[in-house]
Amino acid sequence: MDWLYWFKPWEASILVAGATAVAAILFLKGSARSKPSFQQKSYFWAGLVSVYLVSHTQFDYYSEHQFFIHRLQHLVLHHLGPFLIVLSRPSATLLGGMPPRIRRVFRLMAGWRPVQYLIRALCNPIVAVTLFCGLIGFWLLPAIHFTAMIDWRLYRLMNWSMFVNGLIFWGLVLHPGPILSVRLSPGSRIVMMLAVAPPQIVMGAMIFFASQELYPIYTICGRAIGGLSALADQQIGGIILWIHGAMMSAIGVLIVVRNELMPRKHVRQEQSS
Protein backbone atom coordinates (compact mmCIF):
# COMPACT_ATOMS: atom_id res chain seq x y z
CA MET A 1 0.00 0.00 0.00
CA ASP A 2 3.00 2.23 -0.40
CA TRP A 3 1.58 4.10 -3.38
CA LEU A 4 -1.42 5.19 -1.29
CA TYR A 5 1.00 7.16 0.86
CA TRP A 6 1.59 9.55 -2.04
CA PHE A 7 -2.09 10.55 -2.01
CA LYS A 8 -2.07 11.39 1.68
CA PRO A 9 -2.32 15.17 2.07
CA TRP A 10 1.00 16.66 3.18
CA GLU A 11 -0.82 19.41 5.03
CA ALA A 12 -4.52 18.62 5.31
CA SER A 13 -6.79 21.54 4.45
CA ILE A 14 -10.51 21.30 5.10
CA LEU A 15 -11.09 24.09 2.61
CA VAL A 16 -9.32 22.29 -0.28
CA ALA A 17 -10.92 18.92 0.53
CA GLY A 18 -14.36 20.53 1.02
CA ALA A 19 -14.25 22.69 -2.11
CA THR A 20 -13.12 19.75 -4.26
CA ALA A 21 -15.80 17.48 -2.81
CA VAL A 22 -18.55 20.09 -3.31
CA ALA A 23 -17.46 20.73 -6.92
CA ALA A 24 -17.30 17.00 -7.63
CA ILE A 25 -20.72 16.27 -6.09
CA LEU A 26 -22.39 19.21 -7.86
CA PHE A 27 -20.92 18.16 -11.18
CA LEU A 28 -21.96 14.53 -10.72
CA LYS A 29 -25.51 15.51 -9.74
CA GLY A 30 -25.73 18.09 -12.51
CA SER A 31 -24.41 15.61 -15.11
CA ALA A 32 -27.43 13.39 -14.54
CA ARG A 33 -29.65 16.30 -15.59
CA SER A 34 -27.85 18.38 -18.18
CA LYS A 35 -25.91 15.47 -19.73
CA PRO A 36 -22.64 17.17 -20.65
CA SER A 37 -20.65 15.63 -23.51
CA PHE A 38 -17.86 13.14 -22.85
CA GLN A 39 -15.37 15.83 -23.84
CA GLN A 40 -16.80 18.28 -21.31
CA LYS A 41 -16.74 15.66 -18.59
CA SER A 42 -13.15 14.69 -19.26
CA TYR A 43 -11.99 18.32 -19.28
CA PHE A 44 -13.74 18.99 -16.00
CA TRP A 45 -12.42 15.93 -14.20
CA ALA A 46 -8.91 16.36 -15.58
CA GLY A 47 -8.88 19.97 -14.34
CA LEU A 48 -10.35 19.27 -10.92
CA VAL A 49 -8.22 16.18 -10.30
CA SER A 50 -4.99 17.88 -11.37
CA VAL A 51 -5.64 20.86 -9.09
CA TYR A 52 -6.43 18.52 -6.20
CA LEU A 53 -3.37 16.34 -6.82
CA VAL A 54 -0.88 19.21 -6.78
CA SER A 55 -2.36 20.87 -3.71
CA HIS A 56 -3.55 18.09 -1.42
CA THR A 57 -1.09 15.20 -1.71
CA GLN A 58 2.58 14.56 -0.96
CA PHE A 59 3.31 16.63 -4.09
CA ASP A 60 2.75 19.65 -1.87
CA TYR A 61 5.82 18.71 0.19
CA TYR A 62 7.98 18.93 -2.92
CA SER A 63 6.37 22.23 -3.94
CA GLU A 64 7.29 23.67 -0.56
CA HIS A 65 10.88 22.55 -0.82
CA GLN A 66 11.90 22.84 -4.46
CA PHE A 67 11.49 26.03 -6.47
CA PHE A 68 10.89 24.41 -9.85
CA ILE A 69 8.26 22.07 -8.40
CA HIS A 70 6.62 25.09 -6.81
CA ARG A 71 6.50 26.61 -10.32
CA LEU A 72 4.97 23.39 -11.66
CA GLN A 73 2.36 23.52 -8.91
CA HIS A 74 1.47 27.06 -9.87
CA LEU A 75 1.40 26.14 -13.55
CA VAL A 76 -1.36 23.66 -12.70
CA LEU A 77 -3.13 25.93 -10.18
CA HIS A 78 -3.05 29.10 -12.28
CA HIS A 79 -2.96 27.81 -15.84
CA LEU A 80 -3.69 24.18 -16.63
CA GLY A 81 -6.32 23.32 -13.98
CA PRO A 82 -8.56 26.40 -14.39
CA PHE A 83 -8.01 26.23 -18.17
CA LEU A 84 -9.39 22.69 -18.36
CA ILE A 85 -12.23 23.42 -15.93
CA VAL A 86 -13.27 26.47 -17.98
CA LEU A 87 -13.03 24.49 -21.25
CA SER A 88 -15.60 22.04 -19.91
CA ARG A 89 -18.11 24.92 -19.58
CA PRO A 90 -19.29 23.54 -16.26
CA SER A 91 -21.49 26.42 -15.05
CA ALA A 92 -24.82 24.98 -16.30
CA THR A 93 -23.97 21.51 -14.97
CA LEU A 94 -22.79 22.84 -11.60
CA LEU A 95 -25.88 25.04 -11.23
CA GLY A 96 -28.05 22.08 -12.20
CA GLY A 97 -26.43 20.01 -9.46
CA MET A 98 -27.36 22.50 -6.76
CA PRO A 99 -30.44 22.00 -4.61
CA PRO A 100 -33.12 24.46 -5.84
CA ARG A 101 -32.96 26.60 -2.71
CA ILE A 102 -29.20 27.14 -2.95
CA ARG A 103 -29.52 27.79 -6.68
CA ARG A 104 -32.01 30.56 -5.86
CA VAL A 105 -29.64 32.08 -3.28
CA PHE A 106 -26.86 31.85 -5.87
CA ARG A 107 -28.95 33.65 -8.49
CA LEU A 108 -30.00 36.30 -5.95
CA MET A 109 -26.38 36.91 -5.05
CA ALA A 110 -25.39 37.20 -8.70
CA GLY A 111 -28.06 39.88 -9.12
CA TRP A 112 -26.87 41.85 -6.14
CA ARG A 113 -25.42 45.25 -7.10
CA PRO A 114 -22.03 45.11 -5.28
CA VAL A 115 -21.42 41.62 -6.68
CA GLN A 116 -22.22 42.86 -10.17
CA TYR A 117 -19.88 45.83 -9.78
CA LEU A 118 -17.14 43.51 -8.55
CA ILE A 119 -17.67 41.13 -11.48
CA ARG A 120 -17.71 44.02 -13.94
CA ALA A 121 -14.47 45.37 -12.49
CA LEU A 122 -12.80 41.94 -12.56
CA CYS A 123 -14.00 41.39 -16.12
CA ASN A 124 -12.45 44.62 -17.33
CA PRO A 125 -9.74 43.44 -19.77
CA ILE A 126 -7.06 45.72 -18.34
CA VAL A 127 -7.84 44.71 -14.75
CA ALA A 128 -7.92 41.02 -15.68
CA VAL A 129 -4.58 41.13 -17.50
CA THR A 130 -2.95 43.24 -14.75
CA LEU A 131 -4.24 40.96 -12.00
CA PHE A 132 -3.15 37.80 -13.84
CA CYS A 133 0.43 38.99 -14.37
CA GLY A 134 0.59 41.09 -11.20
CA LEU A 135 -0.28 38.12 -9.04
CA ILE A 136 2.48 35.98 -10.55
CA GLY A 137 4.97 38.83 -10.07
CA PHE A 138 3.76 39.69 -6.59
CA TRP A 139 4.26 36.20 -5.15
CA LEU A 140 7.63 35.97 -6.90
CA LEU A 141 9.04 39.15 -5.31
CA PRO A 142 11.91 37.67 -3.30
CA ALA A 143 10.85 39.18 0.07
CA ILE A 144 7.21 38.19 -0.44
CA HIS A 145 8.13 34.72 -1.66
CA PHE A 146 10.26 34.15 1.43
CA THR A 147 7.39 35.04 3.77
CA ALA A 148 4.81 33.08 1.77
CA MET A 149 6.91 29.92 1.88
CA ILE A 150 7.56 30.18 5.63
CA ASP A 151 4.06 31.15 6.79
CA TRP A 152 1.49 28.42 6.15
CA ARG A 153 -1.40 30.90 6.17
CA LEU A 154 0.19 33.03 3.44
CA TYR A 155 1.18 29.90 1.54
CA ARG A 156 -2.44 28.81 1.38
CA LEU A 157 -3.59 32.32 0.49
CA MET A 158 -1.02 32.34 -2.33
CA ASN A 159 -2.22 29.03 -3.77
CA TRP A 160 -5.89 29.92 -3.48
CA SER A 161 -5.38 33.35 -5.00
CA MET A 162 -3.59 31.77 -7.97
CA PHE A 163 -6.36 29.23 -8.56
CA VAL A 164 -9.23 31.71 -8.21
CA ASN A 165 -7.46 34.23 -10.42
CA GLY A 166 -6.81 31.48 -12.97
CA LEU A 167 -10.52 30.63 -13.04
CA ILE A 168 -11.47 34.29 -13.51
CA PHE A 169 -8.94 34.96 -16.27
CA TRP A 170 -9.41 31.81 -18.32
CA GLY A 171 -13.17 31.97 -17.70
CA LEU A 172 -13.16 35.41 -19.20
CA VAL A 173 -10.97 34.73 -22.23
CA LEU A 174 -12.06 31.22 -23.21
CA HIS A 175 -15.78 31.62 -22.60
CA PRO A 176 -17.63 32.92 -25.68
CA GLY A 177 -20.93 33.69 -23.97
CA PRO A 178 -21.59 36.68 -21.75
CA ILE A 179 -20.60 36.37 -18.11
CA LEU A 180 -23.60 38.01 -16.42
CA SER A 181 -23.75 41.15 -18.54
CA VAL A 182 -20.14 41.34 -19.67
CA ARG A 183 -19.49 40.31 -23.24
CA LEU A 184 -16.07 40.57 -24.86
CA SER A 185 -15.39 40.06 -28.55
CA PRO A 186 -13.18 37.12 -29.61
CA GLY A 187 -10.61 39.66 -30.82
CA SER A 188 -10.25 41.40 -27.48
CA ARG A 189 -10.06 38.06 -25.71
CA ILE A 190 -7.25 36.97 -28.02
CA VAL A 191 -5.44 40.25 -27.33
CA MET A 192 -5.81 39.63 -23.59
CA MET A 193 -4.23 36.21 -23.88
CA LEU A 194 -1.42 37.62 -25.98
CA ALA A 195 -0.96 40.44 -23.45
CA VAL A 196 -0.26 38.10 -20.53
CA ALA A 197 2.48 36.23 -22.39
CA PRO A 198 5.28 38.88 -22.53
CA PRO A 199 5.25 39.69 -18.78
CA GLN A 200 5.54 35.96 -18.02
CA ILE A 201 8.37 35.62 -20.54
CA VAL A 202 10.19 38.60 -19.00
CA MET A 203 9.73 37.33 -15.43
CA GLY A 204 10.79 33.82 -16.41
CA ALA A 205 13.85 35.15 -18.23
CA MET A 206 14.78 37.38 -15.29
CA ILE A 207 14.70 34.37 -12.99
CA PHE A 208 16.52 32.18 -15.51
CA PHE A 209 19.33 34.66 -16.12
CA ALA A 210 19.75 35.72 -12.47
CA SER A 211 23.33 35.00 -11.48
CA GLN A 212 22.55 34.79 -7.77
CA GLU A 213 20.05 32.91 -5.69
CA LEU A 214 16.81 34.92 -5.64
CA TYR A 215 14.91 32.61 -3.32
CA PRO A 216 17.20 31.51 -0.49
CA ILE A 217 14.25 30.08 1.45
CA TYR A 218 14.70 26.74 -0.36
CA THR A 219 18.33 26.55 0.74
CA ILE A 220 17.47 27.62 4.28
CA CYS A 221 14.67 25.11 4.81
CA GLY A 222 16.33 22.44 2.69
CA ARG A 223 15.61 21.21 -0.82
CA ALA A 224 13.51 18.13 -1.43
CA ILE A 225 15.72 16.84 -4.24
CA GLY A 226 19.36 16.38 -3.42
CA GLY A 227 22.08 16.89 -6.00
CA LEU A 228 20.43 19.85 -7.72
CA SER A 229 22.15 23.16 -7.08
CA ALA A 230 20.23 26.25 -6.01
CA LEU A 231 20.87 28.01 -9.32
CA ALA A 232 19.89 24.97 -11.41
CA ASP A 233 16.64 24.71 -9.44
CA GLN A 234 16.01 28.41 -10.01
CA GLN A 235 16.76 28.15 -13.72
CA ILE A 236 14.38 25.25 -14.27
CA GLY A 237 11.72 27.22 -12.38
CA GLY A 238 12.39 30.25 -14.59
CA ILE A 239 12.09 28.16 -17.75
CA ILE A 240 8.74 26.76 -16.61
CA LEU A 241 7.37 30.27 -16.17
CA TRP A 242 9.03 31.52 -19.36
CA ILE A 243 7.94 28.79 -21.76
CA HIS A 244 5.10 26.78 -20.28
CA GLY A 245 3.28 29.75 -18.76
CA ALA A 246 3.35 31.67 -22.01
CA MET A 247 2.53 28.54 -24.01
CA MET A 248 -0.91 28.33 -22.42
CA SER A 249 -1.77 31.65 -24.07
CA ALA A 250 -0.94 30.21 -27.49
CA ILE A 251 -3.19 27.20 -26.84
CA GLY A 252 -5.96 29.50 -25.63
CA VAL A 253 -5.69 31.67 -28.75
CA LEU A 254 -5.87 28.60 -31.00
CA ILE A 255 -8.99 27.39 -29.18
CA VAL A 256 -10.76 30.74 -29.54
CA VAL A 257 -9.79 30.97 -33.23
CA ARG A 258 -11.00 27.44 -33.93
CA ASN A 259 -14.26 27.73 -32.00
CA GLU A 260 -15.30 31.24 -32.89
CA LEU A 261 -13.41 32.62 -35.86
CA MET A 262 -13.15 29.62 -38.18
CA PRO A 263 -15.85 29.03 -40.84
CA ARG A 264 -19.28 28.22 -39.46
CA LYS A 265 -19.01 24.47 -40.06
CA HIS A 266 -16.90 24.11 -36.93
CA VAL A 267 -19.20 26.23 -34.84
CA ARG A 268 -22.19 24.17 -35.84
CA GLN A 269 -20.34 20.97 -35.02
CA GLU A 270 -19.48 22.37 -31.61
CA GLN A 271 -23.04 23.34 -30.90
CA SER A 272 -24.49 20.02 -31.95
CA SER A 273 -22.06 18.06 -29.79
Binding site: Y117, R120, A121, N124, V127, T130, A143, I144
Partner: peptide, 24 residues
Protein backbone atom coordinates in the same frame (compact mmCIF):
# COMPACT_ATOMS: atom_id res chain seq x y z
CA UNK B 1 -16.83 53.47 -13.15
CA UNK B 2 -15.00 50.37 -14.29
CA UNK B 3 -11.98 52.45 -15.32
CA UNK B 4 -11.81 54.24 -11.99
CA UNK B 5 -12.22 50.91 -10.22
CA UNK B 6 -9.35 49.47 -12.22
CA UNK B 7 -7.25 52.51 -11.33
CA UNK B 8 -8.07 52.10 -7.65
CA UNK B 9 -7.22 48.39 -7.67
CA UNK B 10 -4.00 49.16 -9.54
CA UNK B 11 -3.04 51.78 -6.97
CA UNK B 12 -4.02 49.50 -4.12
CA UNK B 13 -1.82 46.68 -5.44
CA UNK B 14 1.16 48.93 -6.06
CA UNK B 15 0.69 50.54 -2.64
CA UNK B 16 0.56 47.16 -0.97
CA UNK B 17 3.71 46.06 -2.78
CA UNK B 18 5.52 49.23 -1.69
CA UNK B 19 4.51 48.77 1.95
CA UNK B 20 5.62 45.14 1.92
CA UNK B 21 8.89 45.96 0.18
CA UNK B 22 9.65 48.76 2.65
CA UNK B 23 8.81 46.59 5.65
CA UNK B 24 11.05 43.84 4.26
Amino acid sequence: AARSLSLITGRFISGLMMVLAVSA
